[in-house]
């Protein structure tokens, strides 16, 4: 089966949507000494995947399903307000809410420029929609399914911090890549779990939290110098 190129573009870290400016909490975790080498990085990525990774993948899948439903019954813009509030409620850290919204805005600009689609216009009404909502809508616009949205989201939840770790800690890129390869089955498992929530009640979406990531995200704003925004 072909992997549709429009979806590969959304999963590509070279997508000009500002993702390179965010470390997913890796920079403050490294500064705090919580990640120092490849084994601690692997542990960090497993934890991030099971928490933030699961939540954002489920939101992306729900957003993708919502896009498809909204297209079927003309509009339903209110659904976006509901999903946006559900994303907020799952993101207690103001720094993480800001990072999610700023990446959402960048992604929306990139995908609307590259391939305009009516599904993306409803989100443009938000000043800065959350990243997983934009990703889910972009996957739907590219012809993908909620499962695709969950996969791309879960994949990005670990690859972003992994490449930040290579830059920040000067880790061996091959060893980091091996850690990612070992995580791949878990990425698929999280995506499958997340995708299962797509059509359900948004209130019941997973809400797995990572207390350390929350603390790191807020500490990061006080740190100088910073290489990454979050």
């Amino acid at each position: 089966m072909l992997l549709p190129a429009p979806l590969l573009l959304l999963a590509d870290s070279r997508l000009p949507a500002g993702g390179h400016a965010h470390s997913g909490g890796l920079e403050p975790a490294a500064a705090a000494g919580a990640v120092t080498d490849v084994p601690t990085l692997a542990g960090f990525l497993r934890g991030r995947l099971a928490t933030t990774g699961l939540v954002t993948a489920a939101l992306a899948a729900a957003a993708c399903a919502h896009t498809a439903r909204a297209a079927a019954d003309h509009g339903r813009a209110s659904g976006w307000t509901v999903l946006d509030a559900e994303a907020d409620a799952r993101t207690p850290s103001p720094a993480q809410r800001r990072a999610s919204r700023s990446q959402g805005r960048s992604l929306l600009r990139a995908v609307r420029t590259a391939s305009p689609h009516p599904a993306l216009d409803a989100l443009a009404a938000f000043p800065a929609p959350h990243h997983p909502l934009v990703l889910g809508a972009a996957v739907a616009a590219a012809g993908g399914s909620p499962a695709h949205a969950a996969s791309i989201s879960a994949y990005g939840a670990v690859t972003g911090p992994a490449s930040a770790a290579v830059r920040l800690l000067a880790l061996d890129p091959l060893a980091v890549h091996r850690a990612l390869a070992e995580l791949a089955p878990r990425v698929d498992a999280v995506a499958a779990e997340a995708g299962g929530f797509a059509g359900g009640d948004p209130a019941a979406l997973p809400a797995a939290s990572a207390p350390a990531l929350d603390v790191f995200a807020e500490l990061h704003l006080r740190a100088e110098p910073r290489l990454f925004e979050s």
Partner: peptide, 13 residues
């Protein structure tokens, strides 16, 4: 325990 001790979740707390 594996997930507890992840630097992203609880670390050594």
């Amino acid at each position: 325990p594996d997930l507890c001790t992840s630097g992203a979740v609880l670390g050594d707390a």
